[in-house]
Each structure stands twice: as C-alpha cells, then as structure tokens.
Amino acid sequence: MEDWILGIPTPVAMALIALIGYFLGKRNHRPASAEQAYARRELKRAKAIVKQLEEISREVRRNLASHQSSIAHFKERIVTMSARQEESGESWQTLCEEAERMLSPTMRLSAQIANAYDEVRQQANLLMTFTESRTDPLTGLSNRRALDDSLESLFAMKDRYELTFSLCILDVDHFKKINDEYGHLEGDRVLQEVASLIDNCVRETDVVTRYGGEEFVILMPSTDLKGALIFAQRIREAVEQHLKVTVSGGVAQASSTDEPQTLLARADAALYRAKSQGRNCIYCHNGDSVQEDPSVGQSDASLSHENAELLLEEVRSLEKTLGQRESDKTNAREQHPTEIA
C-alpha cells in the first residue's frame, strides 16, 4: 500500500521537495558567490590599509626617536653650563639658538602626528565599507553612501594637507538598448562583468562604487588629472577588448574651490561630452572647461601629421614618375617621329 503525505503520494512529495530545494539552491548560489568575491576583495583592501597604517606608525616612531635624542643632548648642555656657571651672553646666545633649532623639528613632528591621526581616521572610514549598508547588492561594490563618506574624508585631507585626488565617472554605452533587447537579467549580468573588470584594475586604496544604474565612480587618492586619465583610458580599452560593451568616461581632479557635489558635477559634464561625441571615449574637466583627453589629441595630431608627410612624399614621387614618363615620350618622338605617328 502506497504511503501518502498531505494527500500526495510519498514519491511525488519527495520529488517536489527535491525540486524546490534545487531551485532555492540555484537562486541563492549567485548571491553567495558574489558575497564571497566581495569578502576576498575587501580583505585584500584591508591588508593594504593595515600596511599603510604600519608605515605611518614606523615613520612617527623614527621621528620620535630622533627628537628624543636632540632633547637629551640639549638637556646635557644645560646641565654642563649650569655646573660651570657660565653666564656669559655668548654662551646663553648659543643655547638659545640651539633651542630654536630644536623647535622647528618639534613643530614638524606635531604636524606629522596630526597628519597620521587624520590618515588613520581616513583608513578607518574606508574599512567601514565592509558593512552591508555600504555595499551594492548586485555588483558587490561600494554604494552611494560609501562614496559620500569617502568623498568627505578625502576633502578633509585635501583641505588640511593639500593632498590631491581625482574622480572618474564611467557609464556603460547603450545600456538601455541591452535591457530592451535582451532583458534585465542580461543587463544585470553586464553590470556585474563591468564592475568586476573595473575592480580588478584599480589599486587597493582606490574606492570603486556603483553610482546608480549603469554608472560607476572611482575615487583615486594621491592621483592628479593626468594619472586619472591614464587609468580611465586603460579601463575603457580593457572593457572594449574583453567585454561585449563599451564605456564612456568623465574625469576631474579636486580643486581648492571644489566640494563633493561640484567635483561630481564637473566629472559628469565631461561624461556628457564623451556621450555626445560618439561614446567609447574619455573626456576631462580641467577646472575651466571640458576637453578631450590631451594625450589622445596629441596622438591623433601626430598620426595625422605623419600621414600627411607620407602622402606628400607619395605625391612628389608620383609627380617625378609622371614627369620622367613625359620626358621619355618627348625623346621618343624626337628620335622616331614616324614610328610614334
């Protein structure tokens, strides 16, 4: 006699349970893999941050050791002079000069300690991107909230110590067409591929975020406009070579008058120009206006000049050949007028 479970034959019920388990496992497989990849990526970044903090600590310890030696020497000098009861103006003048020489490294050391504190705070803010609330669930990258916090930290460092940094916005070209023609699942897969490629190309200290939709923002500490353009072009070329889509980009370097929103607006203006100029290219905002990547312009100009020179040589060679042929015909007519006729 066949067993029944909730009015369903046992074999059928077991098969249904197995099928449900399969689909649940299939559904949860991708998020788990994405979460593991994100954990590995963040662990790599954490190691880099710890290394930077260790370097800061070693530098402060070296400076403290050197300063302590100077203080000890200065103390010995005071004791010696007091024992000899040297009260001459010249001796005390020398001592005052030595005290002034000690004051300068003291002030530098104080600034270094304050700088080290701010760097520790900045790195601690970066470590906070480990939390789920700062992570984009689709790509595993940092989200808009993490970007805002990182921008605030970088601007604080820039205002206090004049440390430079740049920002790049990348946008997947014709992304709406991908969604319309192939569906949103394919669009999600494209975004994951682009995010993974960008994340594998950046340094550990760079911050990669999904800005919204098909846009990605990369923060590059200690990077000027030229370096940011080189990076953006490298990403653009890698996407074109390895994926079935292309990206356009806008780059800007933080200036003394910038704040987070104005920096993002300048980079976005450069991105808009790249889109309007045919896509799959990089433009930058130099602080005054939007322009194409200067290195690309120089390369194109050089190539055009070289082509013009080659063309000119070919024209001269052709003129010379035609002239020679015409001369040969003239000589032939003079020597054999009857045959030519």
Rank of each mutant, 00 (worst) to 15 (best):
N200D: 12
I5T: 14
R236F: 02
R40H: 15
N286S: 07
D180N: 04
R266K: 12
L318G: 08
A37C: 08
S150C: 01
E132P: 04
F74M: 00
E42V: 09
S91I: 10
V50P: 05
T205L: 14
E76H: 02
E97V: 12
K177M: 05
A111I: 10
N307T: 10
F216R: 04
Q291E: 13
L219D: 01
H336A: 14
F175R: 07
I71K: 02
L95C: 09
A32K: 13
C281V: 06
A83F: 04
G89V: 08
D136F: 00
Y117L: 14
R77K: 01
K244G: 14
R145I: 05
S276Q: 10
V251F: 12
V190E: 04
A83G: 07
L264A: 05
L225H: 04
H305Q: 12
I169R: 08
K320Q: 13
R234V: 06
R40Q: 15
S104K: 15
T246L: 11
Q68L: 12
Y161A: 01
I78D: 04
E326T: 10
R144A: 01
Q298R: 13
L312S: 11
R101W: 03
E119Y: 15
S153Q: 07
L303S: 04
K158Y: 10
E119L: 14
A228G: 03
I8A: 09
V208I: 01
S153L: 05
D136A: 03
E59I: 00
F74D: 00
Q36H: 11
L312K: 11
N63F: 06
P11Y: 08
S317F: 08
L225W: 03
E35C: 11
W92V: 08
N115D: 13
E98P: 10
D149Y: 03
G7S: 07
Q233K: 02
M81G: 00
G287F: 02
D148A: 09
R40D: 15
Q52N: 06
L43D: 12
T164G: 09
M81F: 00
S299A: 15
I49M: 09
A111C: 09
V296F: 03
S66F: 01
A37I: 10
R236W: 05
A32G: 12
H184M: 09
F23G: 09
A83K: 11
P294C: 03
R210I: 02
E309H: 03
D206K: 04
N143Y: 03
F155Q: 09
G183V: 03
I71Y: 08
